[in-house]
Write a protein that binds this DNA or RNA. Structure first.
Lengths: 128, 128
DNA sequence: ACAAGTAGTTCGGTAAATGATACTAGGTAT
DNA sequence: ATACCTAGTATCATTTACCGAACTACTTGT
């Protein structure tokens, strides 16, 4: 029983895997934008008081996030148009982060996820 | 300069890392439930026609998902109360998956994520 | 005796995300 | 001269998610 592998191509036009599925699911794409471990926390923090500096964000994450990760997550949010970064040519350096207009449209979505979680977790805890 | 490591504990009561932050962010918790690569796709597929069998789901994922991964994702969705699994004592085996009532409450949330993505991607493509 | 069908499990591997730690630059305060 | 401040980089290690391929159990059909 060596070559009984099922090769089932029905419905697959192009052999490059995952192309269709990965790009077809809108929610998967949303997760790519805000699915990072700290991103929603960061978006909320920047939304709550704007502008926010790098060090403030780090402290607001209770210093648990590393600088490297914080930099990465902020850069990705900037690349995806969610936040704006403004660096001032001072020393010590000062960098300010703000939500973009596009980023602000995320807030109601985040709130609806929070609302669902509240109802869900309440329901699950009652179940026991 | 060896021991200039900043040990900054302000605001941290308990030394166990991440406890506060990880559980405080509702959205992060939501991602734990539906953040798996195939979960939203599976939830949608099971919602669209119910009940759904294991093999049907695999085919609907265009056979790109492996059986191992499909099993894992389904088991987690079941553990989290989103879907119900019913196995029939037949041979060949038959297993049916359905959305639970709790799982059905996910549908509007998923739709709102899809709606946001549509607006977002439209806006981003116009920007260029 | 053997293959087919379903819903898995098992083993081994890889890539991506995140973490820990140390280091940097340029100006200000001591 | 040296230390401090901010906003990072650089390097390496670890964890987690997911993939590929093979194997399994049980019963019916040939």
């Amino acid at each position: 029983m060596k070559n009984n592998t099922i090769i089932d191509n029905e419905g697959i036009e192009n052999p490059e895997k995952l192309n269709l599925k990965e790009n077809n699911c809108a929610v998967t794409n949303v997760f790519k934008v805000i699915g990072g471990k700290w991103k929603v926390l960061l978006v909320n923090a920047i939304y709550n008081d704007c502008p926010k500096r790098f060090g403030e964000l780090k402290r607001e994450m209770e210093n648990v996030i590393t600088q490297a990760t914080l930099t990465t997550q902020l850069r990705e949010l900037e690349r995806d148009g969610i936040i704006c970064r403004k660096a001032y040519a001072e020393s010590p350096p000062r960098v300010e982060y703000k939500l973009s207009e596009l980023g602000k449209t995320l807030i109601p979505v985040i709130r609806s996820l929070e609302t669902w979680w509240d109802a869900y977790s309440k329901c699950v805890s009652e179940q026991k």
